[in-house]
Design a protein around this nucleic acid. Sequence first.
DNA 1: GAGTGGTCTAGACCACGTA
DNA 2: ACGTGGTCTAGACCACTCA
Lengths: 248, 248
Amino acid sequence: MTAQPNAEPATLHERIRADIEAKILAGIWRPGHRIPFEHELTAQFGCARMTVSKAIAGLVDAGLIVRRRRVGSFVAQPRMQSVILDIPDIQADILSRGEVYRLNLLSSQRREPARGQPDEQLLAGAGELLAVRCLHLSDGRPFALEDRLIGLSAVPEAEYADFSATPPGTWLLDHVPWTEAEHRITAINADAATADLLAIENSAACLALERRTWRGKQHVTHVRQIFPGAAYDLVARFTPRSSDASMR
Amino acid sequence: MTAQPNAEPATLHERIRADIEAKILAGIWRPGHRIPFEHELTAQFGCARMTVSKAIAGLVDAGLIVRRRRVGSFVAQPRMQSVILDIPDIQADILSRGEVYRLNLLSSQRREPARGQPDEQLLAGAGELLAVRCLHLSDGRPFALEDRLIGLSAVPEAEYADFSATPPGTWLLDHVPWTEAEHRITAINADAATADLLAIENSAACLALERRTWRGKQHVTHVRQIFPGAAYDLVARFTPRSSDASMR
DNA sequence: GAGTGGTCTAGACCACGTA
DNA sequence: ACGTGGTCTAGACCACTCA
């Protein structure tokens, strides 16, 4: 949990927000209930309308309130909607746990996109691809196996980067602003080669995390990271509008 | 992608935000660069400071800007931070794909929390637990195996709910507002019993999704859902401040 | 001390959806 | 037509932090 549990909020709009939130959580205002109009809250709290509006806007962000013009603002139907999952930089994550990070660069080669792989051709654009394969180690133990493709037309300077000094993911974060990413999380049985590299049993369950990243419409990189399922979990903790998440 | 790509934003603070965002994404303002002071932007756009402030606040939410008093506002170092993962209601998800949803309620029993299980005792509080085990089916094929514990002191009316009519997750969403949830995603090898229920091979890799939900400080429910890894992925797509996610 | 962002006010006009 | 929320203004004071 990030925030202290019961600290009285300092600012007025936060107190108003907390006041409304408390009524909802206590069940006094059930889903679908119309909360007081903004001008009523203005009178109740003796403040300007913008302040009330800011408080409600926060509750809308948190998914607790729905506003409808000409009608009013209502307590939202609860939904298992957005859950914030943090998928951190592997190096930073290992270091933050006080463990020793090491990268084993298995291969790195420039090549043409494969025929019959429209994904690779989109990633390559007019240029070529950089294919990097590496193993992340934490305290000497395999932590994740990474296969990455980088579009050299999007990131030409990647060709000259030293990925044994800086892991490719970290390097890209530092060099390329991204606007969009798609993640896919799957469970797979490790094949023989993967199991060997990760030092796990053959066909042991692993988490496969695939991420494709764009800058604007330009596809920047596509990475697949495989984590031993027995050792590492993805954890996401959610509180409306404040979250804590990590990989354990 | 949810939002239309290049629609000119209607409101002023959105245009200001888009203007700043564009400079960052184009690389004109690199990470660490100090963007103009608010009073400068006020002059540049010919508007009130609150409008500029609202625009920047949005960029702070999106993680693109960091504000520092007395110093200025800066382009944030990009981080692979919050990724919004949508973990929807299974029934709603299956129905939204046009498939037939069916629930197989395997067991449902009221019982005491197990000794030596502090988790269960916290969940039970002063009362007992409701333990529900069910299988979600999509078009007749096993979709997920669910084991759920519900704290009857937190949700006493759950005891009389008909979980063969409404899946427990859906029922809880409709009846209990929640404030906090913790998710854990793991890969596991299916044991014999699980494999049998899910109609998959023994020790096939599965995604295990564990979720614990609170209302305030009160622990409401703890659920573990197991998905055949070969058939289903968790997908999350991220764009700063607007997202699309689903389970496939 | 000086200048930044953080918050707030007391108005105003507008867009929109309901009736 | 009406009343809601949505946006915006032109100020103001404060808190914080750097010099």
